[in-house]
Design a protein around this nucleic acid. Structure first.
Lengths: 110, 110
DNA sequence: TCCGGATAACCGCTTGTGCGAATACATCGC
DNA sequence: GCGATGTATTCGCACAAGCGGTTATCCGGA
């Protein structure tokens, strides 16, 4: 198979898809898309310890999906690229189609 | 946090994002987007045993990302929803931006 | 019956996660 | 400048889940 595409997909996966491979991180991205927040705010929002949130943020940070800026003692997190949300919304649309299709199928069988 | 969004994201993750959490499956999706194929064709393309390919295909099939149809003794696999590729391409665009940004940063530091 | 494909069980391995504890970092009062 | 405090990151550990590969089995259509 095409080595070029292979490398590119590996890059894509390693850099982005893996970051989306955890529901908590997707929630963080949506939360940040709504409005930038501090770590403590996210922790409260997600009802998780700071250490857990911080580690998820590190994953997103390393892949440059979020940007950071100091705000006094706190750290401000914001979405780096809104297109990530676009992509997720596209996937949600796909999911909606698949589910309704599935529902129609189930109905036709009942 | 909003229980509604929480459930929806969990659904999104469980149904789609998890399917994209493996580079082999992404390659399969791109391969099918290019042209529908048989299992044996995919196995050859990916240079992997049939059982491995079949297992990946099961994941994609269960999540309705691919469709199947019999073609004589063989089974024809096709991409169920081209929007998945759209979403992946969007992510590739995000990745490209992030990488060029990173390169520019590295250059400014050297 | 033969072939393409699906499924299952098993193994070894890697990776990711959550959590708590410990550590850095910045600010404030003195 | 120096601790004290609130905030964030990192570390260590135990645990679960996923993947690859092999093997074997079952199923469907030619």
């Amino acid at each position: 198979m095409d080595e070029q595409l292979r490398r590119e997909v590996n890059l894509l996966h390693a850099n982005l898809c893996q970051a989306l491979a955890d529901p908590t991180r997707i929630l963080i991205l949506y939360a940040l898309a709504e409005s930038p927040r501090h770590v403590s705010g996210l922790a409260e929002l997600l009802d998780a310890p700071q250490s857990t949130v911080s580690r998820h943020l590190k994953v997103l940070r390393d892949r440059r999906l979020v940007t950071t800026s100091r705000d006094g003692a706190a750290v401000h997190y914001a979405l780096a690229d809104p297109r990530v949300i676009d992509a997720l919304d596209t996937l949600r649309a796909v999911l909606t189609s698949a589910l309704s299709q599935q529902a129609a199928l189930a109905q036709s069988l009942s």
